[in-house]
């Protein structure tokens, strides 16, 4: 009841806030039921990285980041069409069988929930105290967990896999942070996980640039400035004047 009341109180204000929001504003929003105080706490990045081991060429590395990536843009009407056309999680490349840890205390919500994608196996953990849920996708095997089971931050909860199920095709973990309890909104993990993302980006010879909207070319060009996406929502990156125009 408290959360509903709070929501109603803020409804007019929220509409005004949307109108006032700069186009390039960055934010990561917790879900329904989170008070302003809790929202402030989430600004402190309550999650940890999903691996116990440090990153490196033997363990894991950051791959595709969240948001308006060039790769997502060119798949906005196919792979990513149900989530605003953007990459709605962070991909971490990792060899199959890499241990994945819970990124916050929580309660197992769903195991192998195929409707949430990221097959062949996935895991969803609710974090009601934070107002978020987390999804761990492309797992090697069905996690040996039961809905309702409590997990602690840092507990091993799954093993990473490969969406191609070969373990040499594209082995990686797809990690999403969604709202709780709706789980329809996806937020930028860069703003919610306590990590130095600029350091994690220092690999190889390329820059992971973002697709540009030439009508507003600074929009969504930073790791931490990316829009939230909602399942079934409009395509966010269907730009009239995109750049690059082809891959």
């Amino acid at each position: 009841m408290k959360r509903k009341t709070l929501l109603a109180q803020f409804s007019r204000f929220v509409l005004l806030a949307v109108l006032l929001l700069p186009a390039n504003a960055s934010f990561a929003a917790p879900a329904e039921g989170v008070s302003g105080e809790q929202a402030s706490q989430t600004d402190e990045r309550p999650f940890i990285l999903p691996f116990a081991e440090p990153p490196g060429p033997d363990t894991w590395l950051m791959a595709q980041t969240y948001g308006n990536t060039v790769g997502a843009y060119f798949n906005r009407n196919t792979t990513y069409r149900f989530s605003g056309g953007i990459h709605f999680g962070v991909d971490f490349s990792a060899p199959c069988g890499t241990e994945i840890v819970a990124i916050a205390d929580g309660v197992v919500a769903l195991v192998d929930a195929t409707a949430y994608g990221s097959l062949p196996h996935n895991l969803i953990i609710d974090h009601p105290q934070l107002g978020y849920a987390t999804l761990y996708g492309h797992l090697l095997e069905r996690p040996n967990l039961t809905p309702g089971q409590e997990v602690k931050q840092g507990d091993v909860v799954a093993l990473s896999g490969d969406p191609e199920e070969t373990c040499f095709g594209r082995p990686h973990l797809h990690l999403e942070i969604r709202d709780y309890p709706g789980r329809g909104w996806k937020y930028n993990p860069i703003n919610l996980i306590d990590a130095d993302w600029d350091n994690l980006a220092l690999v190889g010879s390329f820059r992971s640039g973002f697709e540009r909207d030439l009508d507003d070319p600074r929009k969504w060009q930073q790791l931490d400035d990316q829009p939230p996406a909602v399942t079934g929502g409009p395509i966010l990156n269907n730009f009239a004047n995109p750049w690059p125009r082809s891959r």
């Binding site: 929501l7 949307v18 329809g184 909602v230």
Partner: peptide, 20 residues
């Protein structure tokens, strides 16, 4: 305010969203 807007939209979305 935006945090709450997101929550509100998520709640609405939860009722009608297509599966993923």
């Amino acid at each position: 305010g935006l945090l709450l807007l997101a929550g509100a939209l998520a709640a609405c979305n939860n009722e009608s969203r297509p599966p993923d």
